Simulated scan of single mutants.
Amino acid sequence: MTGTVLVTYGTTNGSTAEIAEAVAGILRKGGLTVESCPARSVRSVVPYDAVVVGGGLYAGRWHKDARRFVRRHRDVLAQRPVWFFSSGPLGDSIAGRDVPPLRGVRRAMTRLDARGHITFGGCLKEGAKGRIAKMIVSSGKGGDFRDFGAIEAWAQGIADALTHA
């Protein structure tokens, strides 16, 4: 593949954006042309040959910007290779586990014949937006639970699939 890959995301406190940037960086190292931007700012996916969509998990739902992006662009996304990721579980409990996608994400994956999904640990630190997020941080249950080694390995798999297609 010689086209451009879009890595887009819905995030509230920036953790999912940082994961998306890490994914984009690995794809670039793999020789791909990559654009990375918030899902709410994408006007068209027509210029892209493949798409990676990430969404933070909030109260058992994928970030609204990621959900809206998939709904708005579903017809074009169905014609391209698409991967999804979620971020957000806090704590070490997901380390090394395959966490299935939320029901809504799973439905979108089926409709679009998505190539894959992964859930990464999240990050919630002092200064987080939102009442619940602030309560989690103040209770001592916040922190950074992202595994950038796992993120890079997953992104490398996408780069390999796209460059050897």
Rank of each mutant, 00 (worst) to 15 (best):
L6K: 04
G121I: 05
F148L: 09
S15G: 11
W154H: 00
V45E: 01
L112H: 08
V5W: 07
S36K: 09
R107T: 13
L27H: 09
Q156R: 14
A155F: 06
D147T: 01
D160F: 10
C123I: 00
G88D: 08
T12Y: 05
R71N: 13
Q156E: 15
G142H: 04
V23H: 04
D65L: 03
T2L: 10
R28Q: 12
G56D: 04
P38T: 08
I118C: 11
A128L: 03
T33E: 14
A17D: 01
R111H: 12
D75K: 14
R97C: 10
D147N: 13
A50T: 02
G14M: 08
R40N: 11
S138G: 08
E126A: 14
G142V: 00
G3V: 07
I19A: 03
S93Q: 15
V53I: 11
F120Q: 04
F148V: 00
I118M: 15
G143M: 06
W83N: 04
S15P: 06
Y9N: 02
C123N: 04
G122E: 01
F85D: 00
F148I: 06
G121Q: 10
V105G: 02
T110R: 15
G56R: 00
Y48F: 14
W62E: 12
D160I: 13
T33D: 11
D65G: 05
R67A: 13
K64C: 04
A108R: 06
M1F: 09
V34Y: 03
A39N: 07
A133P: 00
A95Q: 15
W154Y: 15
I158Y: 07
V53D: 04
G142T: 02
R28F: 00
M1E: 11
S15T: 11
L162H: 10
G104S: 14
M109P: 07
L102G: 03
R67E: 13
R74Q: 14
D147P: 09
A155T: 01
D49V: 15
A128G: 01
V7P: 02
K125E: 15
T163K: 11
Q79I: 03
Q156L: 14
L57T: 09
A66T: 08
L6N: 05
V53G: 00
W83R: 05
P81C: 05
Y48W: 05
A39M: 06
V137C: 04
R146C: 09
